[in-house]
Every structure is written in C-alpha cells, then in structure tokens.
Design a protein around this nucleic acid. Structure first.
Length: 296
DNA sequence: CACTTGACCTGTCCGC
DNA sequence: TGCGGACAGGTCAAGT
C-alpha cells in the first residue's frame, strides 16, 4: 500500500508518539507478519525503550535501547496505529470510530507500552512484516543493499537520477520507476502522477527517454512526493497515519484513479489500462507514445 | 544479467 | 443475495 510519502508520514507521526516509551508486551498470532525468535523478542524488545524512528525507501525502522531495531514493511495494506487511553476513550477524537475498535481482525501485532498505550500493526492481506534485528545488521539486509537512492535527498541530482535507469534500458519507464533498486520509494500512485507531470507515456522504453525528459521526470517526481508528504499521504482505502487518520493527497491527484474524468491540463478524458502489470492512468493527449520508438 | 509473469492474502466491487 | 472474476497503494521467486 504505502509509498514513500505515506511511510514518511507514518515515520513522522511515530517519532512524536512513541519515542521514549518502553515496551511492556508484544502479542502476535500471524507468524508471517512477525517472523521472529521468541527468545530474541523477550530479551531485546520487551523492556526496551524506543530511541528513534527512521525510514529508508518504504521501510520503517524503530530503534530501541538494546541496540536492536524493529524493521517494518507495510506492503499493500499495512498500518501502524498508535492508541493511548486518551485517543481510545476521548470524546471528539476525529477517528474515534476507527481507533476505538482496535485491535480488530486485521491486527497482526500488538505492542503494549508500560504506560498503557499501544502500537497496533494491522495488515489485512498479510503481505507486510515486522522483523527484529540487531541495529548493526539492518544495513546488511538484502533489501538495504539493493535499494536505490532516496529521491528527495538534497544531494540527489537530476543527472544521478537519469544514470540510475541505464541498467533498465529495454523495459518501460513505468516498470523502471517501480523498480526499488533504481530509485527508492516510488509506487503505483506517484509513478502515474509523475509521468503525467512530465508528459511521458508509461510504456515508453527507457532507452527512448531523452535527457530533457529525465530531468522533467525528476522534477515532477520530487514535486508530487513532497506535496504528498505535505498532505499526509494518499488514502484510497487502507492507508492511515500513526494516529489512524487518512491522508488527503488523493484530493490533489491529477490522473491516479481518475479514469473517465478530465485531464486538469488539457481537458481530455483520462484513461486506464495495464502497464508493468499494474493499473495505469494517463491523459492520452498529454502522454503519447512517440512514433517509431513506441512499444506495446 | 535483464525482463516478465504469477504468487502471496483478504476484501470489495461489479456483472450476471 | 449469491457467485465468479477482476482488482487493490508491493515485493519476490520463478520462468524465458
């Protein structure tokens, strides 16, 4: 589910909500969601205090005082929702109806803190996971070794962006954008949104994209991701932030899930089709396949 | 290696 | 109201 902006929104929320809290109990009943040795959990997670919440690509890392880290991937439907007594029982909370019900049938892991508050890991489809590792071992994970650079880092340049794609010359630009080893954190929403911004058809082969187009795509990708972070992410169905609230980027989306509506730039009706195995949205006027270099 | 497709799960929506 | 199929914000392990 969540892409870089949604995971970053959760990270910011958790930073203010759980740092300094100490784990009292950890309850889990779906091994796939929590594939950890009980001995390690008892020794290094229970009794540990949260010191930091970090993000790399779409992965969250909760560092604790035992020099261990809880590494979390939310995949499609994962949520991390913090609930304290005030949130759970307080009248007038905007999401009383949601967080008041937790844990629910999608709750895979419940972390109880010593002050009585809880962090719930909900995941309807069970694709996500929460792994406890020594902090030193996190950078050695396969994912961390393979993942590409953070697109929003200050030192990430347009030429670095373009260079990352050379390895994927013969695939479509959308497939390459979704490849986490090319650039970190791009998913289906922001791939479609940034390609619309740069006026590039998702099925264009990487090797047909010009230097100017790569630069434009770089700018648009950073623009949509920064805007989405500002808006607290995108919520179609499952995504919520650490307080159980939905994000509002979808109110600003230009093509994603807007098939049948008008392109905000030219008024042409937006269409949807499949590209790189994913539902894909474009303005057929703004984003055209170019002549002899086209691919189907 | 690079590239594509199906699999992993549960729930919802849409057409019959 | 029920049933089948397609689809959903992401990776992976296979296959070519």
């Amino acid at each position: 589910m969540p892409e870089l902006p949604e995971v970053e929104t959760v990270r910011r929320g958790l930073t203010s909500l759980i740092i300094g809290r100490t784990v009292k109990t950890v309850v889990h009943d779906t091994p796939k969601s929590f594939p950890n040795d009980p001995q390690s959990v008892a020794s290094f997670m229970v009794g540990a205090t949260v010191t930091e919440v970090r993000r790399r690509a779409k992965v969250l890392m909760i560092d604790v005082s035992t020099n261990y880290t809880v590494v979390i991937h939310l995949k499609m439907t994962g949520q991390l929702v913090f609930v304290d007594d005030k949130t759970r029982f307080g009248a007038g909370h905007p999401n009383d109806s949601l967080v008041g019900m937790l844990p629910d049938k999608s709750t895979r892991v419940t972390i109880e803190f010593t002050d009585g508050s809880h962090l719930f890991f909900n995941d309807q489809r069970k694709f996500g996971w929460m792994k406890l590792l020594p902090t030193d071992a996190v950078p050695l994970m396969d994912f961390m070794i393979k993942v590409g650079p953070e697109p929003l880092n200050d030192d990430f340049t347009p030429s670095q962006f373009a260079a990352r794609f050379t390895r994927r010359a013969n695939t479509s630009i959308k497939a390459a954008l979704l490849d986490q080893s090319v650039v970190a954190g791009v998913g289906n929403i922001y791939a479609d949104e940034s390609l619309w911004g740069a006026k590039i058809h998702p099925k264009r082969l990487v090797k047909t994209i010009t230097a100017g187009e790569f630069k434009h795509l770089y700018t648009e990708l950073r623009f949509v991701m920064n805007l989405a972070i500002e808006k607290g992410g995108s919520s179609n169905q499952n995504y919520v932030n650490a307080e159980g609230k939905k994000g509002s980027y979808m109110d600003f989306a230009r093509v994603f899930r807007r098939e049948g509506l008008e392109c905000p730039r030219c008024g042409t009706v937006i269409i949807k089709f499949k590209a790189a195995g994913r539902g894909t949205h474009i303005c057929p006027q703004c984003q055209q396949l170019s002549g002899i270099l086209e691919t189907l």
